[in-house]
Design a protein around this nucleic acid. Structure first.
Length: 491
RNA sequence: CGGGGUGUAGCGUAGCCCGGUAUCGCGUCUGCUUUGGGAGCAGAAGGUCGUCAGUUCGAAUCUGGCCACCCCGACCA
């Protein structure tokens, strides 16, 4: 392994690719467009899952699991949804292989084992789930249904990037059914809030909450809400979506319920999801040219302790001092690694743990021991200080909290510095090249959005929830507009 | 799927134009010295040169097919 990552400033995407590999998060696999998520990367994902799952449970949801395969006839039932995903579906057509008589030792698809009906590998599960909900729902007493599933999905992407866009990815998808439109809309908003809270409090990534424009809306939804984050290259990344499905899927799958008043009506639905793409967001939001920077709440290892010693005796002495500190740290729920391996020297370890984004590193040698001190280094600021050993565990506990806050603030400041109110088309053209979020007036039409995308590759990331009412004129057409939307180039 | 590029030891590479089975660095193993920011010296192991076919006495090198990855487009979370 050679040292040094590519520089963010020189080649952002190369920096990202290298970082993912070098920090042991993931690697390419033998399957085109699919990645192997390595243990270190997966443990970050597990932490995300845990936090999100707790929040889903807290808001009344339960987990279930639905099949990977969707019969084509079910898949096509909701027309817009089917259309939206048709171009990127993997399809199972056969159920058996056989020995290839032409080439001994190899297998071929058995032409006699053609499926009567093709199975679509789920790109999302609305179809299979709503076809099931039909059987579960008869009356208002059966509602609401609040289900989430953790699953893999497949979208046959032409161009893939680790975590950001892979042919197969892991996610969670919530699918709820309600007796009223109001309730479904409230659910849609609630889950968007859950995502925003998760992104900001756990990932330390500030997000803009908003509505998608019609162009960017989920196929089959009445309304799509999203959280958008800004990456360090000024590009936007959609970090999560929450959809109000109206009665679209209920109608497509004939899911009706009898109301208190005895009336028969279609059920109202929502769906919402976040994926392993969040890993990409996490990486690109905080990391630097030395490697990953992880927020303590998602870091697999919070603190690494590196002993600096000559010979077994020194190590034993240091270990004795360190033991109670480790114990105390663990009692605070802090994950500690005491790296006493002799295989690498301290300098190597320092670089390695920086690459992997461990939030706090402590180093201690005989000299420190005599002075009753220990060196504490922060990953987020790359600063070091010498602290008394006395009370160090409590200090580190507070430090981790401070790091979590600092990382968030850093990202928030970055976003502020790269968000602009843009009022003229010339300004727009100039600023979009530099990146960032461009808050602009827009005439509300898909045509205008399309045109802007064609000209600049920028799209409307969202219509922010907190956009203030303000008279203005569309950045491109000059037509009247009541509030600003966010334009940006996006991942 | 279009345009461009790359594929040689675990990783990164030289050699390819001008055919004669392979260079260097990192890592690995052994030993000694080391250990406060990616250690030093000495020795050693490790390669069907992406893959399949063709040309040739002989192919990493020339020709063709295929596969994978990267960059740029089109498509998308």
């Amino acid at each position: 392994m050679s040292k040094g990552l590519p520089k963010r400033s020189e080649n952002y995407s190369e920096w990202y690719n290298e970082l993912v590999k070098r920090a042991d998060l993931a690697e390419n696999s033998a399957v085109r467009g699919c990645m192997v998520i390595k243990p270190y990367g997966y443990s970050i994902w597990e932490k995300m899952q845990r936090a999100l799952d707790d929040m889903f449970k807290e808001t009344g949801h339960t987990n279930a699991y639905f099949p990977l395969f969707v019969p084509k006839s079910l898949f096509e039932a909701e027309e817009k949804n089917a259309e939206g995903f048709a171009k990127e579906c993997a399809v199972v057509t056969h159920y058996r292989l056989k020995n290839n008589p032409e080439k001994p030792g190899t297998l071929m698809v058995d032409p006699d084992a053609k499926l009567e009906e093709e199975l679509v590998v789920r790109p999302t599960s609305e179809a299979i789930i709503w076809s099931t909900y039909k059987n579960w729902i008869q009356s208002y007493r059966d509602l609401p249904i609040l289900i989430n599933q953790w699953a893999n999905v497949v979208r046959w992407e032409m161009r893939t990037r680790m975590f950001l866009r892979t042919a197969e990815f892991l996610w969670q998808e919530g699918h709820t059914a309600h007796a009223s439109s109001e309730e479904a809309i409230a659910e849609t908003k609630q889950m968007l809030e859950v995502y925003a809270t998760f992104a900001e409090e756990f990932m330390a990534v500030p997000v803009v909450k908003g509505f998608k424009s019609a162009n960017e809306r989920f196929a089959g939804a009445e309304e799509t809400m999203c959280i958008e984050a800004m990456m360090q290259d000024g590009k936007a990344l959609q970090a999560g979506t929450s959809h109000f499905l109206g009665q679209n899927f209920a109608k497509a799958f004939d899911v009706k319920f009898q109301s208190k008043e005895g009336k028969l009506d279609h059920v109202w639905g929502t769906s919402w999801g976040v994926s392993t793409r969040l890993m990409g967001a996490l990486i690109m939001a905080h990391s630097d040219d030395n490697g990953l920077v992880l927020p303590p709440k998602l870091a697999p290892i919070h603190v690494v302790i590196v002993p600096i010693y000559k010979g077994e005796e020194d190590l034993a002495t240091i270990s004795e001092t360190i033991k109670p500190i480790i114990k105390e740290l663990k009692s605070y729920g802090i994950t500690v690694k005491f790296d006493d391996s002799d295989a690498q020297r301290p300098g190597w370890k320092f670089a390695e743990y920086e690459l992997k984004g461990v939030p706090v590193r402590m180093a201690i040698g005989m000299r420190d021991l005599q002075n009753g001190v220990i060196e504490v280094a922060r990953r987020d600021t790359l600063s070091k200080e010498t602290r008394p050993i006395e009370g160090i565990a409590a200090y580190v506990k507070d430090l981790l909290e401070e790091i979590q806050v600092n990382i968030y603030n850093k990202a928030l400041n970055f976003r502020k510095e790269n968000s602009f109110e843009v009022n003229t088309w010339d300004e727009f053209l100039e600023q979009i090249e530099k990146g960032g979020f461009l808050h602009c007036h827009w005439d509300g039409t898909s045509e205008t959005e399309e045109k802007i995308k064609e000209l600049t590759k920028a799209t409307i990331r969202c219509i922010p929830l907190d956009a203030k009412e303000e008279e203005g004129t569309c950045i491109l057409t000059g037509k009247p507009s009541g509030k600003r939307v966010i334009f940006a180039r996006a991942y």
